[in-house]
Simulated scan of single mutants.
Amino acid sequence: MPGRTATRPAAGPAWDTVEPGRRGQSALVTAAVLLGVPGLVLTGMRVLPPADDAAALVASFVPYAIPLLGLALGCLLVALVRARRRARMAVPLAVVAVLLAAQLSWQLPYLVPDDRPVVGPAFGLLSLNTYKGEADPDQVLAATSRADVVVLVEVTPALVSALDARGWRDRFPFDAGASGGAVANTVVFSRYPLSGSRQFGSGSFDQWATTVDVPGTGPVALVAVHPCNPYCGEGRWAREHEDLRRVVAAELDRPLVVAGDFNAVVDHGPMQQLHRLGLRSAADLLGTGWAPTYPAGRALPPLLAIDHVLVDPALAVADLERVPVDGTDHLGLLAHVGRSS
Results as ranks from 00 to 15, higher is better:
residue 52 D to N: 13
residue 225 V to F: 04
residue 44 G to E: 04
residue 59 A to N: 11
residue 309 V to D: 03
residue 8 R to G: 07
residue 124 G to I: 00
residue 308 H to K: 13
residue 109 P to D: 12
residue 176 A to W: 08
residue 44 G to W: 03
residue 21 G to R: 06
residue 45 M to P: 05
residue 193 P to A: 05
residue 82 R to W: 02
residue 71 L to E: 08
residue 88 R to Y: 01
residue 295 P to N: 09
residue 131 Y to M: 07
residue 321 E to H: 06
residue 35 L to V: 06
residue 89 M to R: 00
residue 107 Q to L: 11
residue 327 G to L: 01
residue 335 A to S: 11
residue 128 L to S: 03
residue 191 R to C: 07
residue 254 R to W: 12
residue 64 Y to E: 07
residue 236 R to Y: 10
residue 232 C to I: 02
residue 35 L to D: 13
residue 93 L to D: 05
residue 243 D to C: 12
residue 59 A to Y: 09
residue 96 V to M: 06
residue 62 V to G: 08
residue 251 E to A: 14
residue 137 P to W: 02
residue 136 D to T: 01
residue 135 A to Y: 01
residue 233 G to S: 08
residue 199 Q to C: 11
residue 227 P to N: 11
residue 86 R to T: 00
residue 38 P to F: 11
residue 213 D to F: 04
residue 168 W to P: 12
residue 83 A to V: 00
residue 306 I to Y: 00
residue 48 L to S: 10
residue 99 L to Y: 09
residue 55 A to Y: 09
residue 46 R to C: 11
residue 233 G to V: 03
residue 55 A to I: 03
residue 36 G to C: 06
residue 10 A to C: 12
residue 34 L to D: 09
residue 258 V to P: 14
residue 319 D to G: 11
residue 289 G to T: 06
residue 318 A to I: 03
residue 299 A to H: 04
residue 33 V to E: 09
residue 131 Y to R: 11
residue 102 A to K: 08
residue 120 G to M: 02
residue 218 G to P: 14
residue 122 A to I: 05
residue 277 L to Y: 07
residue 38 P to E: 12
residue 40 L to N: 12
residue 181 G to D: 04
residue 128 L to R: 02
